[in-house]
Design a protein around this nucleic acid. Sequence first.
DNA 1: GCAATTATCTGACCTAAGTCAGATAATATG
DNA 2: CATATTATCTGACTTAGGTCAGATAATTGC
Lengths: 291, 291
Amino acid sequence: MTHDPISRVRRFNRAVTAEVGALDTSFLGRGRPLGAARVLNAIGQGQSEIAAIRDYLSLDSGLMSRLLRGLEDEGLIETVPDQQDARRRVARLTDTGRSEFQEYEALSNAQAKTFLARHSSPEHLLRAMDIVASSLRRDHIALEEKDPRHEDALYCLGEYYGELARRFDNGFDVSLSRDPDAKDMIRPRGVFLVAMSDGLPVGCVGLKGSGGDVAEIKRLWVAPSARGLGLAKRLMTSAETIARNLTIKILRLDTNSALPEAKQLYRGTGWTEIDRFNDDPYPDTFFEKRL
Amino acid sequence: MTHDPISRVRRFNRAVTAEVGALDTSFLGRGRPLGAARVLNAIGQGQSEIAAIRDYLSLDSGLMSRLLRGLEDEGLIETVPDQQDARRRVARLTDTGRSEFQEYEALSNAQAKTFLARHSSPEHLLRAMDIVASSLRRDHIALEEKDPRHEDALYCLGEYYGELARRFDNGFDVSLSRDPDAKDMIRPRGVFLVAMSDGLPVGCVGLKGSGGDVAEIKRLWVAPSARGLGLAKRLMTSAETIARNLTIKILRLDTNSALPEAKQLYRGTGWTEIDRFNDDPYPDTFFEKRL
DNA sequence: GCAATTATCTGACCTAAGTCAGATAATATG
DNA sequence: CATATTATCTGACTTAGGTCAGATAATTGC
């Protein structure tokens, strides 16, 4: 059988190496070696500390130094000693550098746009690309504490509500549910975690504290593109650890039978089913975990 | 908005460049520069003519020559003048070369396997990878004439029947349908086209001739991973061109309302609806096109 | 204040990859 | 058969990328 899973992965790898080569060389279209272009790009993205860039691109310090000198000679960047620590240097774009960076950005955007435009249902293709990207970079998904009113948190919540509306027989209306007060999901009472995969929010969970010993887990969600990576478990473990640090003794949560994978997760990670503890119209199953 | 389509494509590109770098360097794990490894791999895959390999890897003739010499010095390949044209040379693996090639193969397979194994629903991930790979390599999808009993043709037909079974209200049973005789879809009577994307069959169409002026289009199918690329239209256009070359004057086909995208394609490409022309239990709509 | 540490830079060096102008030998063309 | 063409090879050269051993200057730790 030539269409087995391994062949399909290898076909994907071949496609990507063949096309990404073409993608990279387009950067050479601006007459600059790839290394220099990557450094310029990193600086343009806002990375200013040289050590950070060197680390990010995993470059030798000697090579890094020469690349910076080259960009300086071109008049694209300038480097100055760090205010706090004069051994370190920080780099920033000059005006010329900024416009050159914009050219690269425009090039990348145009490329992406062309690629999408050739497909007759771009959303379908994008969903597939999100799945692959999240899976490739699964080890780089970072859980970040954010204000529940932060753009990325709101994005997750919106997707979460949308999913509930799709999966519950009678839909879902946030205003009928007990929407937690943002302050209860911010330290010191609680916390809101967003899983970020290279700039894209792909999951979240809220720890809603009351100031006392009992707290609730709310809004556990993982983007469809990031399912199968064990992210829900990771979010829950993190939330629990933070709860412990906040000296919380008992965690509770409510959920719905229309979300069987969630119930299965809770059962498998030390939660026990308890009686209804609120009058929210949506949940039908309730769990507790003593820390 | 940071989660717009273009950002998502670029996120995919970043993920892929970051991870594919790691993928490529694994080949260096066997202590051979990438160029040499690629040539060895091409020869292992069965490419023997040096000119063909050079073309495939787009290498300079000087560079190619040196890479071959290097592999010869390592005792991995041997090159001999071509029988027909002694200017040309053909390369083949030695026994050592063959086992070295197998090592690369094993490495790639292991890598692919590990990647899949980390996902809790590999089939879901694979579907996404197929979509992306087909889309990236859309310009390299080749329509090949194959015997309808060829492995790749049978694969397409199996997928096609499976899809009909899923989409028809009462399922689909080939034995109840009028399954065309393979000979009618082979030249000179007809033809069977399979769309191949780097080894994976992603679509097919049959032209079932009768020896006379009238022929039928049968088994038009495009893999879910290759939809949105205009492949169905390409397959139909090719089949029509071949039909014309076979001096066929009238094309007919039957289809079902459960396949609205197919009906739409026919309507938009010069086909006109006609009365039922057979007693097959599955179709409910019939088309004709005069060439 | 002095030694150890740290961040960056410089010079010397290396490999991989790629380009280009002939050289060589076989084949095709008139 | 002479000439042009073709496939490959060789030598000379270039660039990009990368490594490594100090040099330099600032900072930290005792």
